[in-house]
Structure formats: structure tokens, C-alpha cells
Design a protein around this nucleic acid. Structure first.
Length: 564
RNA sequence: GCGCCUGUAGCUCAGUGGAUAGAGCAACUGCCUUCUAAGCAGUGGGCCGCAGGUUCGAUCCCUGCCAGGCGCGCCA
């Protein structure tokens, strides 16, 4: 579709004495498809042309020579409405998708440039809760969308494997845990003793003091502290891997905060050397009052570093190592101030990393019972949500399609798809209410709905005796086929917008719309068994739809199943 | 107190400086001897938080207010 808009912009621009880009920017889609495919509102031109919008539109309609592009051009209440030549549109879009194969969305705007995406980043020794779902699926999806656009996506899992909580865990472990427990149920045990620690610490401040002391020993490389920390990290990673396997999520780098530990002293020294730091109450800080922010703490009074220090070191490291165009941080919106501070410090250091850094925030999960807190021990485990969804999907398959092969495998793709999609279909920034019913629903605007639509298209293609071919484009110009064709043609723009806004929901909404139009088509138009040329052409539309849905689902991190 | 984010149908959410504000869920009604009914078709349901302003035109941009969420140096 974009090609047609560009061509028309080229023809219209000289008539309005403006650039092609300006003409393109004027275009919109008429609210009623019967009015055309492209609308140009002429109101904003009235002042400069000193003519009534209605007259401008009428003159344009007369003057524009759009032969071969538009079927009709007419003025309507200040708008210039252009209707494209239906068969030409169908031929261009469908052949583009079928020849472009799986990568119709590929535009090569990335040109091989690198984008580093920091996402998931769970805190070691804490359960992988529902709270980590958002960063994990958004980051995963963004990495695929950027790859689709020709970028090299570097996926980094920035594990929270350092900090005072390890002091707490060591104290708790020495007090409450038995070694064998760490083998049977490692994360469950660590979680329990962590909660127990906080329960006791309420009445015993000495425990917190002891925890700080143990973290200090860890930082100094104390053998006992190191080996306990090492075990916590190992058992945690093993458990996280199960969730990542279920979700199909992979990373290029697993680098915890501890990885940057050796770089911290020199990082702080560099900032100090540039004269950016001051001492405040014994702590080393960068004053950001000139930039309207509270100071950024680099060193505590006791000399220990903070997470801002580590994020600055990590950003410098990533910039140097990968030379990226962009560095995305898919982290909850509650950390917006933190990232603004880190970015500002990098800018003050005159590091290019500051400009490249983009915080991609998302809203929190909210619960009917109130706030989730690891410390108080009320968490919903992501793995539980996923297995519950998979079980539910297995039940639906058993009821609706008992003959299906590989039921367990399909159930996994569909169940997980429901959970992932339920998250991605919402705009990032809004808080989301955790709702079992919505997350485990398979009807309506859901992952399974899109997967089902894809499976339906596959089923038709399997049963077809003819091969898809554009034998008779007129078969794609009816009221059910044409809207679908045109929507399929928007896929590249959808991918581009999704990346530009760091918004997987743009793709999610799109595949829902494609599914809806395809199901409508499927219901109203008999695909198989007609005249050969017509059937081949309809099959071409089915194949194009199937490919776009498969690609869209892939970009969201869902699996497109052939049967379900 | 200050800062950031959010406020659209009963619920969950799309939407755009423009022509009648859209989906899904829930409720009700139809449609399986025909390509997968996880579907399709239909009905009802809206001071687009409130008040000003900018504009030929504002749900969208600006200001103020109200409500909710989050954050505001030694946690991450």
C-alpha cells in the first residue's frame, strides 16, 4: 500500500508546490472505505492557497493525472478522495508477499546496525514471578521486530546477581537452611528463607547490620561468601531456564551486575576525574540539580557501590563492545528516574552511550488483593501461570479436536501463546490488572484466536488440490477479500511503527485485525471447489494471510501451529 | 510537597489535529449434512475525568483542577 501512496504523492506534490514527503504526510485513510483508499484533507492548504478547501479538492480532482494508479478521484466536502485500482492493488500486494517469502516485513532500514536490548533481568534467588513476564516478552518481541527491520539485535539478560540482598540471603541461609533443601527445591528454599529473614528483621535490626557486613565481605572476595553466592546463582539460573524454555526466549549474553564489578572503581574514578562528583554526607554523588533531578549516588558512605554505578559501567561497556546504534532497557516505569539520572551522568561524561540509551518503560501488574511483594511472600509464579494455561489448552483440545496429533506440544504453544499475547496486546505503559480469567481466555482478542486463524488457513491450503496463483485478480476485489488484501499490504509499515514506538502491541493489534478479516472472508467466501483460476487466486490470498500471520506471531514470540 | 505516568461502553482496552469514536469480554439472539464453531452474523450499551485555551476543526495539542498508579541519596 505504501508504494501506491508514494506514487500518488509524487504526482500530487507538484500541483501543490510542496515536497513529496509533505504530500505523503497529508494523506490519511477515509473513515468509510466506500469513499476510497486515500484521503487528502485540503483544509490546511486553504490559507496558503487562498482558496476554499472544497475548491482545492475539486481542482485537484480535475488536475491530477493518476491514470494507472487510481480507479477514481473525487472531491468530497474539502477532502480529495482517491480510490485505487482494485486489481492492481491486489496483484501488487499479494505477489509481493508471496515472492518476499517470510520476510515481507523486512525493509532493511536497520542496515545491519546494532541494537542492544536489555530485558528480563530477574533478581537471582528470587522466584521468577508474574512481574517478570512483561519485561521478558516485550524485550523478546522487540528483539525480533528489530531483527525483522534489518538490525542486529543483541539480547542481554542483565541478572540481578549483586547487591545487599545477597548479604541477607547469606545470613538467612546460615540461620535457617539445610544444604539438602537447596538441592530439592532450590528457589523455593531461597525464597522461604528470604521471607523469613524479613519477618525476623522487623524486630531485630542487628540482622540487617549482619547482612550488610556479609555483602561487604562478598565484595571483598571472602571465600565463604563467594562460594555461597556462586551456589545461589547456579541454582537460580537452572530454574529460570525452565521458564525461558517454555517461553522460547533466548539471550546472547547472560551478564549479571557482578560482571561489571571489576569496572566500577575505574568508572567512579573517571567520573571523579571529570570533576562531576561531590561528597555529600560521606557519599560520592553526581549533583543533577541543574537538570532538575535529585543527585545520582555512586558510592555509599561505607564505600560500597550502588546500582546506578553498575548501570553506568554496564552502559559504557556495552557501547564500547557492541558499538550499537541504540541501547534499549526494558524495565518497569518505576525506574524512570533512575534511567534519566544514569543517562544524564553519561551525557555529562560526554559518552555517546548517553544518547543511545533508551528506557522502554512498562506499567506494573496490579492485583485485586493489593501490591505484590517478594519480601512478604505473596507472589504469583510465572511458571504456575504458564502450566495452568497449558493444562487448560490441553483440555480444550481434548474437547474440540481429540484426533489431533502431538496434543501436548500444541497445548504448550497455545497455552503459552495465550499468556504471552494477553500481555503484549496492551500498550506497554499502562498498568495491567492481573486477571486469571483474561489471561487464560482463548476466545476473542487472544493469542489462541490468532493461532487458530493461522491453523485454519493452513488447513485450507492442505486440502487444496490446486496451487496458489494470481490467475484472476478480480477474485480478490470483493467486499470480503479486498479489505484483507489491503491490510496485509500494511505489514511493513506496522513493523516499522512497532519498532519506532518500542511497542509490540502494534503488531499484536495488527495480527488480530488480520485474523478478524480473514475469518470474515473464510465465512463468507467459499475458497475451494470453484472455477480453477478463481480458486487458485483465492488460495494465493489464503497463503499470503498464512505467511503474514506466521510472521506476526513469530515477531510476538508465539508459535504459529499448523493444526490445533 | 515536587516529578513522571494513566483517566474513552458495565469490565479489559484500541484509536486519530479532521468527515458517523471502535474492538473484545460479559448479556441477549441467530448460524455447524459444506474448507477447523478456539469461528461468523446481529442487538443493547459512550458529558472520550472536569473546566478553560489554541485552531477553520480538539477525545487527541497547551494550562489549571479532580481521581488513581509510581517515584523522589546511601535497596534494585
Amino acid at each position: 500500500m505504501e508504494k501506491f501512496r508514494q506514487e500518488i504523492a509524487k504526482k500530487i506534490a507538484p500541483l501543490l508546490n510542496m515536497s513529496r514527503e509533505e504530500a505523503r504526510a497529508l494523506m490519511e485513510v477515509p473513515p468509510n472505505p466506500a469513499w476510497g483508499d486515500i484521503a487528502i484533507p485540503c483544509f490546511s492548504l486553504a490559507k496558503t492557497l487562498r482558496k476554499a478547501p472544497q475548491a482545492i479538492a475539486a481542482d485537484l480532482a480535475k488536475a491530477a493525472d493518476l491514470d494507472g494508479l487510481a480507479g477514481s478521484v473525487e472531491a468530497m466536502g474539502g477532502y480529495l478522495n482517491i480510490t485505487l485500482e482494485k486489481a492492481a492493488v491486489a496483484r501488487h500486494i499479494i505477489s509481493g508477499i508471496l515472492q518476499g517469502g517470510a520476510s515481507f516485513g523486512f525493509t532493511d532500514q536497520g542496515g545491519g546496525k546494532t541494537v542492544v536490548i536489555d530485558f528480563s533481568s530477574p533478581n537471582i534467588a528470587k522466584p521468577f514471578g508474574i512481574g517478570h513476564l512483561r519485561t521478558t516478552v516485550i524485550g523478546h518481541s522487540l528483539s525480533r521486530i528489530y531483527s525483522e527491520l534489518g538490525y542486529r539485535a543483541v539480547r542481554v539478560n542483565h541478572l540481578g546477581d549483586w547487591g545487599t540482598q545477597f548479604g541477607k540471603l547469606i545470613v538467612a541461609y546460615k540461620l535457617f537452611a539445610k544444604d539438602d533443601k537447596l538441592i530439592d527445591d532450590p528457589l523455593g528454599t531461597l525464597f522461604k528463607i528470604y521471607v523469613e529473614f524479613h519477618r525476623r528483621a522487623e524486630n531485630s535490626p542487628a540482622l540487617l547490620e549482619e547482612a550488610r557486613e556479609w555483602f561487604r565481605r562478598l565484595e571483598e572476595g571472602d571465600d565463604e561468601a563467594r562460594s555461597l553466592w556462586q551456589r545461589f546463582v547456579e541454582v537460580s539460573l537452572k530454574e529460570y531456564q525452565r521458564v525461558y524454555d517454555l517461553l522460547g526466549v533466548e539471550f546472547d549474553y547472560w551478564l549479571g551486575e557482578s560482571y561489571y564489578e571489576p569496572l566500577l572503581a575505574s568508572t567512579v574514578a573517571a567520573i571523579e576525574a571529570q570533576g562531576l562528583t561531590t561528597i555529600s554526607d560521606g557519599a560520592v554523588v553526581v549533583d543533577l540539580a541543574d537538570h532538575g533531578m535529585p543527585p545520582c549516588l555512586l558510592r555509599k558512605t561505607d564505600g560500597a557501590t550502588l546500582y546506578a554505578t553498575r548501570d553506568i559501567a554496564a552502559a559504557l561497556y556495552r557501547d564500547k563492545k557492541h558499538r550499537p546504534e541504540l541501547m534499549l532497557y526494558v524495565v518497569g516505569q518505576e525506574q524512570t528516574l533512575h534511567f534519566r539520572q544514569v543517562k544524564q551522568v553519561l551525557n555529562l561524561m560526554r559518552s555517546p552511550a548517553g544518547e543511545k540509551m533508551v528506557h522502554v518503560p512498562f506499567g506494573l501488574f496490579k492485583f485485586p488483593e493489593g501490591k505484590m511483594s517478594t519480601r512478604r511472600g505473596n507472589v504469583i509464579f510465572l511458571e504456575d501461570v504458564l502450566t495452568r494455561a497449558v493444562d487448560l489448552a490441553a483440555g480444550v483440545i481434548e474437547a474440540k479436536n481429540p484426533e489431533l496429533e502431538n496434543q501436548q506440544e500444541i497445548a504448550q504453544h497455545v497455552g503459552v501463546g495465550a499468556v504471552v499475547f494477553a500481555d503484549l496486546k496492551h500498550g506497554r505503559i499502562k498498568d495491567v490488572l492481573f486477571d486469571w480469567e483474561e489471561m487464560l481466555n482463548f476466545d476473542g482478542e487472544t493469542g489462541p484466536y490468532v493461532q487458530y486463524t493461522h491453523a485454519r488457513a493452513c488447513s485450507v491450503l492442505r486440502k487444496a488440490a490446486l496451487n496458489p496463483a494470481l490467475s484472476d485478480e478480480a477474485a480478490l476485489t470483493d467486499e470480503y477479500a479486498l479489505p484483507l488484501v489491503k491490510l496485509l499490504g500494511e505489514f511493513p509499515q506496522v513493523c516499522a511503527r512497532s519498532a519506532a514506538e518500542y511497542e509490540p502491541s502494534v503488531v499484536a493489534r495488527y495480527v488480530l485485525d488480520v485474523s478478524s478479516l480473514f475469518n470474515r472472508y473464510y465465512h463468507h467466501v467459499r475458497i475451494l471447489g470453484g472455477e480453477a483460476g478463481v480458486t487458485e487466486t483465492r488460495l494465493a490470498l489464503v497463503l499470503a494471510t498464512q505467511r503474514i500471520l506466521a510472521r506476526g506471531l513469530y515477531l510476538l514470540g508465539l508459535t504459529a501451529v499448523d493444526k490445533m
